[in-house]
Amino acid sequence: MLKIQNNKFAVFLFVFIIASFAQLSLKAAFGWSPELILATLALSAFYLSVLEMAALCAFGILILNWRPLPGWEILLFFLLPFMVMSVKNIFPWRGMINGALGAVLSVAVFYALSDWGAIISSPAVFAEILAMTAIFSAALFQILNYFYKTHTV
């Protein structure tokens, strides 16, 4: 317990790798997946410092970037967890709901800005992605909250 308390960043790095494995494998198998990676990064805004989160997001970009140089979408992916960090104190609800809302908002903003047309053409798939992302982030938030109490309860 004490070790986990001292290594929040390592725990998030581990969760990030597991989430990446799950998301990329689900996408390979079914053609779509909940946004587990972005949800993990958005939740890190509730637990990590700015510098720790920046390091985690940069590692995320290193793994996920699929272009020779990072493009607009990957930049957005880097910035969204910081957006959550800056607005998290405005959320008035319990920690778990705030965490899920932060993750869902990040995913919604990400797709609204990067591929608006896809939301219009496949609203049902988009709704499923949001719903499953919300469930994942709420569960992850509760697990992490067992070890680290957040300030937004």
């Binding site: 494995f21 494998s25 390979a28 290193l62 793994i63 970037n65 140089l69 990072p70």
Partner: peptide, 21 residues
């Protein structure tokens, strides 16, 4: 990490290969 993203992006692709089924 930022240096690797710009100077050696293929490292990220290799890591991703390892964690993808």
């Amino acid at each position: 990490t930022v240096l690797l993203i710009f100077l050696y992006p293929s490292l990220g692709w290799k890591i991703r290969d390892l964690i993808t089924v």
